[in-house]
């Protein structure tokens, strides 16, 4: 069934993407950050987003996390509208209640970790499961300890964030997001604020997630090598649009568009 503006109230069928941006527009006043973005991400796919700063790539993740409202179009997650909700056969902008019910499918890690400083690593991970999902403390603890074990932070579980290095904090932040059992994970420049020598400990955790879990992931990154290694698809953003996208081997090995070539050679020179 279609909304009168032509957007489906719900996406059904075998090949329904896990995440779907349909003609999504975002602007701040006169400045258009994203222009009619169409992007589908299949279940279990790992998509990296690269591009120069100001190209709108972080905005894609922030809209998906509902940190930013959109000015046009519709975002779907798991076939159901996220930015909007059906009402009387039409899609209307989502209210807080709808956002809360749909947000449960999405988890996010931030550039600056944003761990809660007044809670230990374990408490950070347990906070969502206990307060939001309503799990018992014992259940939440088991789940959180398992995840902290996975990210290699179990020995520091009773430390506050101020006692942890950047890489350690980011690993706890990943465990915190996973503890909510999201279907989609978003990584927003998670290594950009880290010292070079600890980047590996975070990328290794993400590699492990890709190989062992069937999560859908979107990642904004400046690390081209990492994006090339682990992505199923890479999107190059330029000026609020997807300039070029494709499998990493093709996009990095044989970029078709001039802007992509310029960007990639500029990045290579910087390294």
């Amino acid at each position: 069934m279609l909304d009168k503006t032509g957007f489906p109230l719900e996406m059904t069928g075998e090949d329904t993407p896990m995440v779907s941006f349909r003609k999504v527009r975002k602007s701040y006043g006169a400045l258009t950050v994203l222009d009619d973005l169409d992007l589908d991400v299949s279940a279990g796919e790992m998509v990296s987003i690269i591009g120069p700063s100001g190209s709108g790539k972080t905005t894609v993740l922030r809209m998906l996390m509902t940190l930013e409202r959109i000015n046009g179009g519709v975002i779907y997650v798991d076939g159901k509208p996220l930015s909007h909700m059906p009402k009387g056969g039409q899609l209307v902008p989502a209210n807080e209640r709808h956002l809360r019910s749909r947000r449960a499918d999405i988890g996010m890690c931030f550039q600056h970790f944003n761990l809660f400083p007044h809670m230990t690593a374990l408490e950070n991970c347990m906070e969502g499961p206990v307060q939001v999902l309503g799990l018992s403390k014992a259940e939440a603890r088991d789940r959180s300890e398992e995840l902290l074990e996975m990210v290699g932070m179990i020995s520091k579980k009773d430390q506050h964030p101020s006692r942890l290095s950047g890489g350690q904090q980011q690993r706890v932040a990943i465990a915190r997001a996973l503890a909510m059992r999201p279907k989609v994970m978003l990584f927003d420049e998670v290594t950009s604020a880290l010292d070079p020598e600890v980047i590996g400990e975070v990328t290794n955790v993400i590699r492990q997630l890709v190989s062992e879990h069937n999560l859908t992931m979107l990642m904004v990154t400046h690390q081209m090598g990492f994006a090339r290694d682990i992505s199923d698809r890479v999107c190059f953003f330029y000026g609020g649009r997807i300039e070029e996208q494709g499998p990493p081997a093709e996009l990095f090995g044989n970029p078709q568009r001039e802007r992509t070539q310029q960007f990639l050679s500029a990045v290579r020179e910087a390294v």
């Binding site: 809360r100 600056h112 906070e127 939001v132 915190r176």
Partner: peptide, 27 residues
Amino acid sequence: VPKGQWEAALAINMSPAQRMRRIILPQ
């Protein structure tokens, strides 16, 4: 309290009241 704290609390799907009470006010 840094904006990132609000965002992280929203990312684990807390309600506005929970964000204020559990995350923002203590800091």
